[in-house]
């Protein structure tokens, strides 16, 4: 029986979809059988980030409505044999599916896959309720900004209220130079405020834009963000990996001061 993990944030634009795609690829690289589901009805995105947008025939609503079998809707990744995408429906809205239906769907997928990753839409309305319905574990993505942290805190509260106790944090878009200047909250600042387990921190890496342009994951590229995502995947499967030094490019003095200092 696989694990159903929802990737959520509250606020839009913090990198949920990029995180879902890269964790999917990372877990597949580590030999796990993975399916990623896009539950953002009407605003389909995960397919484009993964470069699979031209292969969509059926979508998640088709499966739920019984227009096709599950196998017909699952799209195999270009590179990874054991990674599949269940795309969202572009022409439907949030009310086309219910939390009960999503729960049933993810339970069915969890019988066949090691990991079922659910990419949650922004907001706390029905799309959120749909996405978390079948999850036993959650990854909250945030950035070091007041607005994103506030929304993340709200989401963590809602996840707790919905009985999801295993909630981890990913802090995205860290800019080391700004942290050092005192103009961006550090990983420790954010972790201290939100007070949940840190799964990993992703630097604001130009390679992510390059990768997304090409519809490829950053995880296969030689980049700090790619390494950070792979470490997150290792922690998800239970490996004890030490945290990356996001300051690896700034040399000796940068390393001495480090970005993980508090305050």
């Amino acid at each position: 029986m696989g694990e159903v993990i929802v990737i959520t944030s509250g606020k839009g634009g913090v990198g949920k979809t990029t995180t879902t795609a890269n964790i999917g690829v990372g877990l597949a690289t580590l030999g796990k059988k993975v399916v990623v589901i896009d539950t953002d009805l009407g605003l389909r995105n995960l397919d484009v980030v993964m470069g699979l947008e031209n292969r969509i025939v059926y979508n998640v609503v088709d499966v739920i409505e019984g227009n096709c079998r599950m196998k017909q809707a699952l799209i195999k990744d270009k590179v990874h044999e054991n990674l599949y995408l269940l795309p969202s429906a572009q022409t439907k809205d949030k009310s086309a599916i219910s939390p009960e239906q999503v729960k049933k769907l993810t339970e069915e997928l969890a019988e066949e896959f090691d990991y079922v990753l659910v990419d949650c839409p922004a907001g706390i309305e029905q799309g959120f309720q749909n996405a978390i319905a079948g999850a036993t574990r959650a990854i909250v993505v945030t950035t070091p900004e007041v607005s994103a942290i506030r929304d993340a805190d709200r989401i963590i509260g809602l996840l707790e209220k919905n009985g999801i106790k295993n909630v981890d944090l990913v802090i995205n878009k860290i800019r080391v130079e700004m942290v050092k200047r005192g103009d961006m909250m550090s990983v420790e600042d954010v972790t201290e405020i939100l007070a949940i387990n840190l799964l990993g921190a992703i630097p604001d890496d130009e390679q992510i834009v390059v990768a997304t342009n090409q519809g490829e994951p950053v995880i296969g590229m030689d980049s700090l963000a790619g390494k950070a995502y792979l470490n997150i995947c290792k922690r998800i499967i239970g490996e004890d990996v030490s945290f990356l030094d996001l300051d690896a490019h700034t040399g000796f003095f940068g390393k001495i001061f480090g970005i993980f200092k508090s305050n």
Binding site: E145, R150, G157, G182
Partner: peptide, 23 residues
């Protein structure tokens, strides 16, 4: 003194005050 004048310290004060009231 330098630390308390950074924009981070302002951000942290704001978010902490927000979360206290919202939680």
């Amino acid at each position: 003194a330098k630390k308390t004048n950074t924009s981070v310290s302002i951000a942290k004060d704001r978010i902490k005050a927000l979360l206290v009231s919202e939680r």
